[in-house]
């Protein structure tokens, strides 16, 4: 996870240019590594552990539709990364003033067996994470 000086410079530049791009162009740049995505989200802050729970199936019958849910009571935002996907950034849940529990469920795509990472940004500005391995089966006739 070591980030070189050069990479930081590039990162900084891309962060500036990225902010000028419409969202859809940003999403197409699948070159972004998990490391870059995390750094963009946390600003390089330490990520601890704590009150965050990511729920995933142990085994996904089909990588096309993997149900996940995440909850972290003091979160203002939670980012989900699929570390083995060509584009690891999956979704960022941002919670507004009228959200109740800071929880969300969705269905994601996983290309292969991999770790799914959830990072929560808390109200006090700190970050915590949870990680779960999901085994994705290779189909027989069904998959």
């Amino acid at each position: 996870m070591k980030i070189s000086r050069r990479k930081v410079v590039v990162l900084g530049a891309s962060a500036v240019s990225a902010s000028l791009l419409p969202i859809n162009l940003l999403a197409q740049s699948d070159g972004q590594s998990a490391e870059d995505i995390i750094k963009e989200f946390t600003g390089g802050a330490n990520i601890g552990s704590g009150d965050i729970m990511l729920t995933t199936p142990e085994i996904a019958e089909n990588g096309n539709t993997v149900p996940i849910s995440v909850e972290s009571k003091k979160a203002t935002a939670i980012k989900i990364l699929a570390l083995g996907n060509p584009g690891p950034d999956v979704v960022t849940f941002k919670f507004g003033p009228l959200s109740a529990t800071r929880s969300a469920s969705t269905r994601i795509r996983l290309r292969k067996t991999q770790d799914v990472l959830a990072i929560a940004k808390l109200e006090d500005g700190s970050f915590i994470q949870d990680i779960q391995k999901v085994k994705v089966t290779i189909g027989g006739c069904g998959g």
């Binding site: 096309n64 849910s69 960022t92 507004g96 959200s99 929880s103 469920s105 969705t106 795509r109």
Partner: peptide
């Protein structure tokens, strides 16, 4: 007029995007 949730999605979200979340209504 007040926000409940705001989700940024990428291509890793499955076909026919599904979300579940909770809200409080005053």
């Amino acid at each position: 007029g007040s926000n409940v949730v705001d989700f940024d999605m990428k291509a890793g979200i499955s076909v026919n995007p599904y979300f579940q979340f909770e809200a409080v209504v005053p």
